[in-house]
């Protein structure tokens, strides 16, 4: 009898406890998917062709500077690097200007038609604020140094060249913004953003580029330097004493590359 009573008690309590937790409810859900596609947008304002015509002796001495010839405007949704690289069609060599026209016989004993691409000098309006990392060994991290006087030759503004390719510069080379490596924003990368919202021409997303070409007299292009800024590439150093640039028309191009930080 007692067992039956106990059974009833237990059953009653079980039903009671079940009742405590009972609650009518319903639920529905919605799935939210977000597709963040990477956008790297480089807007460039520049002339189709930038011409340097050396037809006066002072132009050879002082060089010709084209101020604000190119404006680079960056919009990026990811961390980014921006660099410039000198290139040509390689008709006279991978790291040299293409000779389009050779004036005269072109057969002077010491006349050289292999003009180094690094003879082009750049100056950027804003300093590179994305290259503070300890691992960067470049003597000049960017092209923000003002053009030196025509008798000063230090490679501070010489254009980065890499055997005619557009391979990104290393830690020893120049970038316009950001640098080699993926350590951190500010160390070797620029933060995603746009010149449209970040303060316009004073921001890290807006660069005015000046160009200078300084042949010197004789025309040896004394400001041509390798990336380390210590290895001169002027015509005398590269080809021997008394070398000079062969008169003629030469062409090359500067390629601006915007990449996700890598």
């Amino acid at each position: 009898m007692k067992r039956r009573i106990l059974m009833l008690v237990v059953i009653g309590m079980v039903f009671g406890l079940q009742g405590v937790f009972a609650q009518l409810q319903d639920e529905k859900s919605v799935t939210v998917t977000m597709d963040l596609q990477p956008i790297l947008q480089l807007d460039m304002e520049t002339a189709d062709q930038i011409e340097f015509v050396f037809d006066d002796i002072k132009d050879y001495y002082a060089g010709i500077t084209k101020y604000g010839a190119t404006i680079l405007k960056v919009s990026s949704t990811v961390s980014w690097d921006l660099y410039a690289v000198g290139r040509s069609n390689g008709t006279t060599g991978a790291e040299f200007w293409d000779q389009v026209i050779d004036y005269g016989s072109g057969s002077g004993t010491n006349s050289i038609n292999e003009l180094p691409l690094s003879a082009v000098e750049l100056h950027q309006s804003q300093p590179n604020n994305g290259a503070a990392g300890a691992g960067i060994t470049a003597t000049y991290i960017d092209y923000s140094t003002p053009f030196p006087a025509s008798n000063v030759h230090n490679g501070a503004n010489s254009l980065y060249v890499n055997n005619g390719t557009l391979t990104p510069p290393t830690v020893a080379d120049k970038y316009i913004a950001g640098h080699s490596g993926t350590t951190a924003l500010g160390d070797d990368a620029m933060t995603g953003g746009s010149y449209l919202t970040a303060g316009g021409y004073t921001s890290d997303y807006y660069y005015v580029i000046d160009y200078r070409l300084l042949p010197g007299l004789p025309a040896i292009f004394p400001n041509a330097f390798d990336a380390d800024a210590a290895t001169a590439e002027d015509l005398v150093t590269a080809n021997g004493a008394d070398s000079y640039a062969e008169p003629g028309v030469y062409t090359m191009y500067v390629q601006y590359v915007l990449v996700e930080d890598q």
């Binding site: 319903d26 639920e27 859900s29 939210v32 977000m34 990477p38 990026s76 949704t77």
Partner: peptide, 24 residues
């Protein structure tokens, strides 16, 4: 629903589930 992602995140495809629960 509104999303303004800004520029600080990795590009990719991401997902969340928003649940609505009705209970007495």
């Amino acid at each position: 629903f509104r999303i303004t992602p800004g520029f600080t995140y990795n590009p990719g495809i991401y997902q969340l589930q928003v649940k609505f629960e009705l209970a007495e």
